[in-house]
């Protein structure tokens, strides 16, 4: 049983990567639970299904490989209110009091104001799913849980529930719960993956995030470089493009030979495309080298020109699988 926590700066596609990772794991025949905790219904939108309730729902089948059947991906949208009510009924059988808590606005309070408590509840549900085993009664057992987690800037705080609670709850069941969660999150069964695009700020934030995760003793998994550009021009051609020295006349001649008469407008457009691509690749290569120096496994997902639809997710899952992330 493995817990994969996927984080990343806003706009880098962490939810897409979490979904693709879940599919990739399922393609290895694993039973996977994909969770989201930010109330965005991102999973439902990606997989084009109705909004998810606080309930594990079958979402997709992993593609099988080499005659082996694929596993299943289940989805769960965790919201702190439902998690708290479930927690109360599970541990305290708080029938009447549970309702009273709701009536007095305590649920609201505990989940939005009491910081830390909210995160303990969210991670607590993940913990509960991760702790199940084959002997668990009436509950589905998973081989892996993939958590679409809050962004990099908040991830250490989110996962480091112990620290957040320190000074607020020094004893009591919430504290005990937080300790149990931390033991799982700090163990080798957990991996925190960071998603980035190959631009300066997200890569810097990723490096800072790794330092921070290590500082608080959380296991760093890999870095996923998302939305990378295709490698269509070789180094010489990119050099030439940067110097505005692409052999455009010869390119024009090559196009003529395959029946595409090229006018100046087309050749200019191709030249501009080459230059733009070379510039971006140069930036990407600088950032890729920085990611390489981070001393964690890294993976790469190419940008899909048509955007990420369900088919695209399977394509990305295949890329992650081929690179050994799943």
């Amino acid at each position: 049983m493995q817990v994969h926590v996927v984080t990343g700066k806003g706009g880098t596609g962490k939810s897409t990567v979490a979904a693709a990772l879940a599919l990739a794991l399922a393609s290895r025949g694993k039973q996977v639970l994909l969770c989201e905790v930010e109330g965005r219904q991102g999973i439902a939108q990606m997989f084009d299904v109705p909004p998810l309730p606080y309930e594990e729902r079958p979402l997709a089948h992993g593609p099988g490989h080499d005659g082996e059947p694929g596993g299943e991906v289940f989805a769960l949208a965790i919201d702190p209110e439902s998690a708290l009510l479930e927690y109360l009924s599970m541990y305290y059988r708080l029938g009447r009091a549970g309702k009273a808590l709701d009536k007095f606005g305590v649920i609201d309070f505990a989940t939005t104001i009491a910081p830390g408590v909210r995160d303990v509840l969210l991670t607590g549900k993940v913990y509960e799913a991760a702790q199940r085993n084959k002997r668990s009664k009436d509950a589905r057992h998973y081989d892996a849980v993939v958590l679409d987690a809050p962004p990099t800037g908040r991830i250490s705080q989110f996962l480091n529930v112990n620290d957040e609670l320190a000074g607020l709850a020094k004893v009591g069941p919430i504290k005990t719960q937080a300790d149990a969660i931390m033991t799982l999150l700090r163990s080798p069964r957990t991996a925190v993956h960071l998603v980035t695009v190959l631009e300066e700020m997200p890569v810097q934030e990723t490096a800072d995030g790794i330092t921070e995760l290590r500082r608080v003793g959380l296991p760093v998994g890999g870095v996923v470089m998302n939305l990378t550009r295709p490698q269509v021009l070789d180094g010489d051609a990119r050099e030439a493009a940067l110097a505005d020295a692409l052999p455009l006349a010869e390119v024009g001649a090559a196009l003529e030979r395959v029946g595409l008469p090229a006018d100046t407008a087309l050749l200019d457009a191709l030249g501009a495309e080459g230059r733009d691509h070379a510039e971006r690749r140069r930036l990407e290569d600088t950032q890729r080298a920085l990611v390489g120096a981070l001393d964690v496994p890294s993976y790469e997902l190419t940008r899909l020109p048509d955007g990420v639809d369900l088919g695209g997710l399977y394509e990305l899952a295949a890329q992650l699988r081929e690179q050994g992330m799943a």
Binding site: P230, V232, D234, E250, V251, A254, L260, L270
Partner: peptide
């Protein structure tokens, strides 16, 4: 389509590889 024709033609010239790459980028 033009990029595929270039690749299929198998001309061993750098300029046709560049042309094919640029067409795909476009």
């Amino acid at each position: 389509a033009a990029a595929e024709r270039l690749d299929a033609a198998g001309e061993d010239r750098p300029s046709s590889e560049v042309a094919s790459g640029l067409l795909r980028l476009l």
